[in-house]
Structures are given as C-alpha cells and as structure tokens.
C-alpha cells in the first residue's frame, strides 16, 4: 500500500508516543474513512496488537460493536499468522486479509512494517471502496506514524520511579 521505508522499522525495546495533535489528526482521518466507505469500524493497529486509533459507527440492526483493543489484538494475530502461512508457501506478506461473514466482514491491510489498517464493514460496503480509501488513510497518517516510534535505550531503571505509594498494589485492590 505504501513504501515501507517511509516508516522506520523498530525491533527490541521501543515506545510509541502519540501526541494530542497526532491523535486528533488520526481520528479525523479515520472519521473521513468511515464517512467515505460506510464501514462500522476503522482502526490503525501496531503489529503487536496495540490500537493506535479507532473510530466506530453503529451498523444498526442491533449489531453490537466490539471493544477496539480486543479486535486489534485478534486482528494483529490474524495478520501475523497469515503472513507466516504465506511465507510457508513461498509468498511475501499478503497485501490484505479479508474475512467474510454473513452480515459483517473484516479487512486488514499493512500500512508499513509496524502498522496495519483494520476495517469492519457490513454487506452494503464494497471492498474496492475500502481499498481505495485505505490508500488515503495511509497517505494521511504515515508521516505522523513515523514520528511516534521512539527507540528505548534504557536497559534498567536509572533514576526516578513512580512514587512508591502509586506503584505498589497495582492490582491488589481487586484481589
């Protein structure tokens, strides 16, 4: 979909820092994507499963939309496993993965080595339109996506930690 070299590939320890400005721009692009396509959900996911941005619209007919983080994790897994399957038969990364359901369908396509676009759409939406608009999404956010990766070189806590009263018992109140 885009030249992968436009976004730095990262391995090892890294962080994604999404500024308020970038987040708003991403949301704007995703809303435009939903407006233009009629999709029920659009999201940019990091390949390890984190959702960078997501927007949802009710598809009607009583269909309940899922949690974006759950769908993002599963879609990342789906895409990664399809990639590995493709390699087993001597293929490169698939340009897209489409899951056809009875009423709702899913489209996943890579935006870069680190990010992918996820769309959930009802019967009335044509896949060709999603492909076309996906290119616009890529063009609209790729520069920002390249900026949000921050490689981390710290190997051990060096100085300053969260105040102890805040970091202790992170989950114990539920235990």
């Amino acid at each position: 979909m885009t030249d992968p070299s436009t976004v730095p590939s990262s391995s090892g320890d890294y962080q994604l820092n999404l500024t308020t400005e970038s987040a708003r721009r991403f949301r704007e692009v995703m809303r435009g994507f939903l407006d233009e396509t009629g999709c029920s959900m659009g999201a940019v996911i990091e390949r390890s499963g984190a959702v960078i941005v997501s927007e949802q619209r009710s598809p009607g007919n009583g269909v309940k939309l899922p949690r974006a983080d759950s769908v993002g994790a599963l879609a990342a897994g789906l895409f990664a496993s399809t990639h590995m399957l493709a390699k087993q038969i001597g293929e490169q990364e698939p340009p897209e993965v489409i899951c056809h359901g009875q009423d709702m369908h899913m489209f996943v396509a890579p935006l870069s080595p680190e990010f992918a676009l996820l769309a959930v759409f009802p019967n009335r939406v044509a896949v060709g339109l999603i492909r076309l608009q996906a290119r616009k999404v890529a063009a609209g956010i790729m520069a920002d996506l390249g900026q949000i990766i921050r490689n981390v070189t710290v190997l051990a806590p060096a100085s300053g930690s969260p105040p102890s009263e805040e970091r202790e018992n992170l989950f114990l109140r539920y235990n």
């Binding site: 890294y14 962080q15 994604l16 500024t19 987040a23 984190a50």
Partner: peptide, 8 residues
C-alpha cells in the same frame, strides 16, 4: 512496546 497516548 509501551504505547503512550497523550490525547486520551
């Protein structure tokens, strides 16, 4: 890979 979203 921590994801920090300063908007949300």
């Amino acid at each position: 890979m921590a994801l920090v979203n300063h908007d949300t």
